[in-house]
């Protein structure tokens, strides 16, 4: 504090504080605008007619006859199946992923054995491997080595199961497999903070490794399950590269929402931003809602896990 010199002038201290605080609040507000403007502009544009888009400033709300829901309706028509496909794929993938990862983290953290660190190192390194390094084999794996869609094709006769649903299974398993490292690391950092004596007390109480997991570790990791679910669901739902590689075309019936979005509103005459922004907003809606409801858990996941 610049003003708290030797003469203890209360007034100047208070003034100094106020200026400082005022400065901080100005910055805070400016950055709120910085982070929100692209999003706000997008939403406003989604609600405008093409004419209004060309006429008005992008971030201003639509006025009078410039307001229309036509773009949103049209976008919903095109994006709908992608959103459903993505949810169908991301929900089970996330759940299987976090259950497996929690088990792995338990086996690698709370139970002690020699050589653990080596196995662990492979998990941590796996977090950072660029997916580009595996996508060529991945495509071959699901088409030639293990064509699971064909193997499971009899399932398509079940009620509510369409043949294209099965096409989502390779994508789902892929997400599970490549999601394991990061979620294991997240769970491990949580389990490391759990007192070891709880596990030891379980042993002394005569419980097996499995019972300790079921009766002690699982109930105590409920908050962490929330954190990793929010985190990983967002990641899988938002992911694009695997969809591109395993599904390919935006016109495919099983196309995920991230695959469809970059094609919407594009024509030879240029981009229809009203439609594109509407679609972007609708595509982002599930994770946006999840984020607004559970921002704290999302931040928690990012903090320990990385982007």
């Amino acid at each position: 504090m610049a003003n708290n010199g030797s003469n203890f002038d209360i007034r100047s201290i208070v003034d100094g504080m106020n200026h400082r605080r005022l400065g901080i609040y100005v910055f805070v507000t400016v950055f709120i605008a910085f982070f929100l403007v692209p999003l706000e502009t997008g939403i406003m544009t989604a609600l405008k007619s093409t004419e209004a888009i060309n006429r008005s400033l992008p971030f201003l709300p639509p006025g009078g006859d410039g307001f229309t829901l036509a773009n949103l309706e049209l976008a919903l028509e095109q994006v709908q199946r992608g959103v459903i496909n993505s949810l169908l794929m991301a929900l089970p993938a996330t759940i299987i992923n976090i259950v497996l990862a929690s088990m792995a983290a338990y086996g690698l953290t709370l139970v002690d054995w020699r050589g653990q660190i080596g196995v662990l190192l492979l998990f941590v390194a796996g977090v950072f491997v660029p997916y580009q390094a595996v996508i060529v084999p991945l495509a071959r794996f699901w088409t030639h080595i293990f064509p699971i869609t064909e193997i499971l094709s009899p399932l398509a006769r079940l009620v509510l199961v369409e043949p294209y649903h099965l096409e989502l299974i390779p994508l789902m398993i892929t997400h599970v497999a490549y999601g394991i490292p990061i979620i294991t690391v997240l769970f491990r950092s949580y389990y490391k903070s759990m007192p070891k004596s709880l596990i030891e007390a379980g042993k002394i109480d005569g419980k097996s490794v499995t019972q300790i997991y079921r009766d002690i570790v699982l109930p105590l990791s409920k908050p962490m399950f929330g954190v990793v679910f929010i985190y990983q669901f967002t990641q899988i739902y938002n992911e694009f590269l695997f969809s591109k590689v395993l599904i390919g075309s935006a016109s495919a019936q099983q196309a995920t929402v991230t695959l469809i979005l970059p094609q919407i509103g594009a024509s030879t005459s240029g981009l229809d931003y009203g439609l594109r922004m509407s679609a972007a907003f609708l595509a982002a809606l599930p994770t946006l809602v999840l984020y607004i409801a559970f921002a704290e858990q999302f931040a928690e996941g990012l903090k320990t896990g990385g982007a």
């Binding site: 007192p195 004596s197 709880l198 030891e200 007390a201 002690i216 109930p219 105590l220």
Partner: peptide
């Protein structure tokens, strides 16, 4: 013999009570 089969009971310094 693993601890489970030793028929011992232990009181831990931090008590290690199951919080849930």
């Amino acid at each position: 013999t693993v601890p489970q089969d030793r028929d011992v009971a232990m009181v831990f310094q931090d008590y290690a009570l199951y919080p849930h």
